[in-house]
Amino acid sequence: MQHSIELDKKTRRTTDFKRKLEFVKSNIFLYGLIAPAFILTLLFKYVPMYGVIIAFKDFSYSKGILGSDWVGFKYFEKFLNAPNFELIFMNTLKLSAYGLLLGFPIPILLALMLNQVRREGVKKNVQLILYAPNFISVVVIVGMAFVFLSPIGPVNQIITWATGHPIVFMSDPDYFRSIYVLSGIWQGAGWASIIYVAALAGVDPELHNAATIDGANLLKRIWHIDLPTIKPVMAIVFILSAGGIMAIGFEKAFLMQTAMNLPTSEILPTYVYKVGLKAGDYSYSAAIGLFNSIINIILLVFVNFVVKKLNEGEGLY
């Protein structure tokens, strides 16, 4: 009896394997299409992960990654006990949270407004104007900020005329976060709205017509038709944004950084650059980077859990 049961299980496994093999053969062209992306992801995202072990080693060029001495959590403890740890960590968290809270709803509002534009020619021109800043280099964006907000720039000319003295925006720590976030919203909000515009394109016009006949005004139609349509997309985008809350881009923060605004502009990516590439302390910088990634993973799991609870089981996974 036992022998027949095991034989039956073996037969089922063989049948399942053959069925899966046939499925792969019948879709071999589709697998061929995704093969390059899979290989590139494997080579440039997963294979280099072995290098993260230098965060737990006292890395030496002569000994190599595997030959370097194992030091465990030495560099993690060094960073957590560093005098500037709280400053750098809170700067990163505040800048990211500020950007998320202000930057998340604006693309949604833009998409809802664009969806109300009925003339295709006007709509395309507006979209072109909104999407264009996304293609401007970060270096150019920062350069524009320095020019417009300089003591003799157009913004300060108006302020000087009104108050009698200019404001040194780019050197004042109090203005760094606002300039960083608002310039980022100006640059990326239009492009970020594309996904919501695409989702709203799937709304059946008959729903709006029926709601109009029933006496629903524009705001009610948006609240009861448009927003529920893009709700799953909003949840996914929010989870991904919250999961990457500590992953601030290095380039813009570094370009905007001056000796005067360091109390608010010194964040984890700029600090990793200074201790890693400039000071050559690769193990220490790797430990900081790994710490940052762990925080992102924890936030991703937590936010996904909360969103699933509030969104009737719909989340990223």
Rank of each mutant, 00 (worst) to 15 (best):
A97I: 14
S137L: 01
R118S: 14
P107K: 12
V117S: 12
V140G: 00
P107N: 14
L110D: 12
F135W: 03
S150D: 03
P154L: 08
S96F: 03
A145R: 02
P133M: 05
I136F: 02
K123Y: 10
S150Y: 11
V140K: 01
K94E: 09
V139E: 09
F148S: 03
I152D: 08
A111W: 15
L101Q: 08
S96Y: 13
S150H: 07
I152W: 12
L109A: 13
Q116D: 13
I129V: 14
S137R: 05
N115M: 08
P154N: 13
L102Q: 08
P105F: 05
V138F: 01
V147H: 02
G143S: 05
S150F: 04
L130K: 06
V155G: 15
L102A: 11
I106T: 09
I129R: 00
L128E: 11
L100I: 15
L102V: 10
Q127V: 14
A111E: 12
Y131I: 09
A145I: 04
V147R: 02
F148V: 08
L114A: 14
N115C: 13
L101M: 06
L95K: 09
G121C: 11
A111H: 14
Y98I: 08
I129P: 01
L114T: 14
G99M: 12
I108C: 01
V122Q: 10
V138S: 01
Q127E: 13
V122F: 13
I136D: 07
V117N: 07
Q116I: 02
L130F: 15
F135Y: 03
N134L: 01
K94G: 02
P154A: 06
L149P: 06
A111C: 02
